[in-house]
Amino acid sequence: MPRRTVTKLATVSAVVAGSLLVVAPSAHADLVTHCVGTGGAVTVPNDLLVPAGKSCTLTGTTITGNVSVAAGANLVVVGGNVSGEVRVAADGYLDATDTTIGGQVVLAAGGYGAFLRDARTGAVTVRPKGSATIDSFLFVEGSTIAGNVVVGAGEVRLDRNTQVERNVNSTGTYYTDVHDSFVDGTLSVLNSSTGSVVCGSAVRGRATFAGNLGGVQLGPNGTLDSCASGGYWGRDVSISSTTGGVTVDDNIIDGQLALTANDPVAQVAANNRIRGGVTGDQAGATTTSRTARAAAAADREDAGEQRAQARRASAVQEAAAAGVARL
């Protein structure tokens, strides 16, 4: 099993300068503010742009328009408020903590990644990788996403009481994992190259897992990750055409569990409570060794929050060294 890591997340390539400009009118606001450096608790009365290859760190800033993070740029926002949407270009990075984004967040094809912690936003979209050399990531912790989450590339992890108020649709990602979180709509994970893990979470709508190469783990005692409990599923759960193994352990499914064309056949533990019964091929569950589970958990820990924190810390340090931007 390949390690679930973001191999490039620890490196920050942006060089931060200490200036900020107001330039020509845009289609969405009278002016566009260019941010390079650090900014504080002020209001930007128009759109904001982080220029290509630059970094912007904002604390307590209100932006009344939209935000664009250009190619290779970094935006770190703490305690901010964005009235509009945030769009991140190829090789760009967004890091938002304790921040409200009124519109959607869109990570372009080849975008570096997005990290949301204790934030609120509209829909979140990660474009398919395409021919880009960078495979993106979306890490979300303790946040509310008011719209759909649609991801088509990279590493995806929803964690720590994150709530998605509509649907989660994942196609062609490296992996898509949901831990200790809530999905009020449907969950669909298709064609993930290293599989999907759902632990300690609730999914109110139908759940579909199909064509995942690295396996599917619903609940503890699987080979992909270490977790303490299974989850609640409000409708039918379907797992099909999966290689790498399927484990279903300690779940409540208020519907039917359908298992089709999985190789090897799915392992379904006796401790699951499945209201509509199980259809398809299944086998009794086996217990994964504690060592294997611990190793899997360490992979995700390295891949997720620690690496994102390293990038954030580097960006903040460089922006601070550049001085205060004139917002």
Rank of each mutant, 00 (worst) to 15 (best):
G172C: 11
V189P: 09
Q163G: 08
D30Q: 05
A29D: 11
N81F: 10
A210S: 14
N169K: 13
R204I: 08
T97K: 08
R311W: 13
Q282S: 15
C56R: 00
G222P: 04
D299H: 00
Q267V: 09
G154Q: 08
A14V: 15
A119R: 00
I145L: 14
Y232Q: 07
T279M: 03
G111D: 10
C56W: 00
D30W: 05
G37I: 06
V32P: 06
R307N: 12
T260Y: 10
A207W: 07
V189S: 14
F137P: 02
R120P: 08
A298W: 04
A14G: 13
V316G: 06
L9Y: 08
V126T: 14
T144E: 15
S68P: 03
L213R: 12
A297M: 01
Q309F: 11
A295Q: 06
V156E: 01
A123E: 02
I253C: 02
A270T: 15
T194N: 07
N148W: 03
N251A: 02
T223H: 09
V216G: 02
G215A: 06
E165C: 08
P25H: 06
V324F: 09
S170A: 15
A308Y: 05
T33G: 10
T162F: 00
S192H: 13
C35D: 00
G200P: 00
G214T: 11
N161E: 13
G219L: 07
A90E: 02
T288V: 15
A108S: 14
G234L: 07
N167M: 05
G172P: 11
C35H: 01
V6K: 08
T260W: 07
L20N: 11
S83D: 09
V44A: 14
A298D: 11
T186V: 11
E318T: 06
L107F: 11
T288Q: 13
S55N: 11
D180W: 11
A210H: 04
R290Q: 13
G284E: 12
V42Q: 08
A266Y: 05
N161K: 13
C199I: 00
S193F: 02
L107S: 15
T194M: 05
L187Y: 15
Q163K: 15
L9C: 15
S13C: 07
P45L: 05
L58A: 07
T97R: 12
R166I: 06
P2S: 13
S201Q: 01
V156P: 03
C56S: 02
N46F: 04
S13Q: 12
A90N: 00
G215C: 07
Q282W: 12
R235I: 06
G122N: 09
T243Q: 12
A52M: 06
D30P: 05
A108C: 09
P51Q: 03
S241L: 08
V178K: 01
H28R: 14
V265K: 00
A294G: 12
G18Y: 03
T133A: 14
A296S: 02
G195A: 02
T62H: 03
V151R: 11
T288N: 10
